[in-house]
Simulated assay, not measured.
Amino acid sequence: MASHRRPARPGIVRAGKAAVLSAAAVAVAASAAVPAGAAPRATPADVRSRVGALYEQAERATEDYDAAQEQESRLRGRLDAVQDELARGQAAVNRMSDALAVVSGAQYRDGGVDPSLALLVSSDPAGYLDRASDLARAEGLQAGRLDRLRDAQRALAQQRAEAGGEIAQLDQVRRRLAARKQAVRDRLERARRLLATLTVAQRDAIGYGAAADGRTAPAGRVPDLPDLPASSDRAAEALAAARSALGLPYLWGGTGPGAFDCSGLMYWSYRHAGVTLPRTSQEQLGAGTHVPLDQARPGDLVVYRDNASHVAMYVGGGEVIHAPYPGARVRYDPVNMMPINAIVRP
């Protein structure tokens, strides 16, 4: 039976096959451009997000490191005091032991005869009784010395135990310091590798390039700050100190004068004003009166994030001075550059 189906048009068939082959070639070429199993290249926005998270983690670890450093310093001071006291106690015990040994030796040489027999053979009983009384007093003195020696030895043992406890605690803090240091280094290295995947222009565009450090003085742009007085003379002095640090590099654990981390800059600036702030941003959160942002004055501390892991100094006009992150320099930035935890007036 004859078929009534219209035969396919050869030209259309050839065109369809060519389109399929062309699409397949594009797919093969695309797969060849990206190695199998390779992760797609991160976009600048992805890098900015991931680097920001790494820097936040590094700052938190840095503040923990700073706190551990402070604890280590206090423990070293306490240990030095305990060891000095231990040395003095040991010297006292040695002197008491030597004195007791001299008295005991003399009494052994002079008092080897039973007192009652000595009285019988004595040609001068009255004189002997006087000497015996002196001997009794000497023995009483020796007994007192012995008691004091025992007390001194007990105190010495307690001091040794205290020194041992301080040493153990110091070792524990030093291990924590090493762990925090490694945590900071790990996160900074990961951030460095991520930023290295971008061009200079891309790093500038996401705020992690050299262009961001143009917000320093005297070489770069200085914000147009209003003539707003500081909250106090001390705050004005601290602000002047912070401004003198503009352009200096970030250094985690740094308290100046040549490099700073965020809380180190605040600590150093207020030391110039005769005020000793706590060392870490978490502690600086409680170092004064909290005020609303709309009442902030130059010299106030601006503490960021829920975990208080970053801190800056308000300069007025919606700007702060701070040590931003590793690789950057002390600079001006907008006060709302990250979530604000509190405004603190020392």
Rank of each mutant, 00 (worst) to 15 (best):
D80K: 10
A91P: 02
T62Q: 01
A87R: 14
A101L: 10
E70A: 15
S97E: 12
R78Q: 15
A68R: 04
Y65K: 09
R95S: 12
L79E: 06
A68D: 08
A91E: 09
T62E: 03
T62N: 14
E72M: 13
D98M: 12
T62K: 03
D98R: 12
L86C: 08
L75K: 02
D64A: 15
Q69P: 02
M96G: 08
D84M: 09
V82E: 13
E70P: 04
Q71H: 13
A81Y: 08
D98C: 04
Q83E: 15
A99L: 09
L86S: 08
A87W: 03
N94P: 02
A91W: 04
Y65C: 01
A68Q: 07
S97V: 09
A92G: 04
R95N: 11
R95L: 08
D84T: 14
V93N: 03
L100K: 12
D98I: 10
L86A: 06
E70W: 01
Q69M: 14
R95C: 05
T62R: 05
R78W: 00
A67K: 05
Q69V: 11
Q83L: 10
Q71Y: 06
A81Q: 13
R78N: 12
Q83I: 05
Q90P: 00
D84L: 09
E63W: 00
G77E: 10
E70D: 15
E85A: 14
E70L: 12
Q83Y: 02
D84V: 03
D98F: 09
Q69I: 06
A81G: 06
Q90E: 10
A92S: 07
A67D: 10
A68V: 10
E85R: 15
A101Q: 11
M96R: 10
V82I: 07
D84C: 07
E70N: 13
A87F: 07
A68C: 09
D64M: 10
S97Q: 15
A91K: 07
L86K: 03
E70I: 03
Q71L: 12
S73W: 05
N94T: 13
V82K: 06
E70R: 12
V93G: 01
V93L: 10
L79F: 01
Y65F: 13
E63L: 03
Q90D: 10
R76P: 04
Q83S: 09
S73E: 12
T62V: 04
A68H: 05
Y65P: 00
G77A: 10
A101E: 11
V82S: 11
G77T: 06
D80E: 13
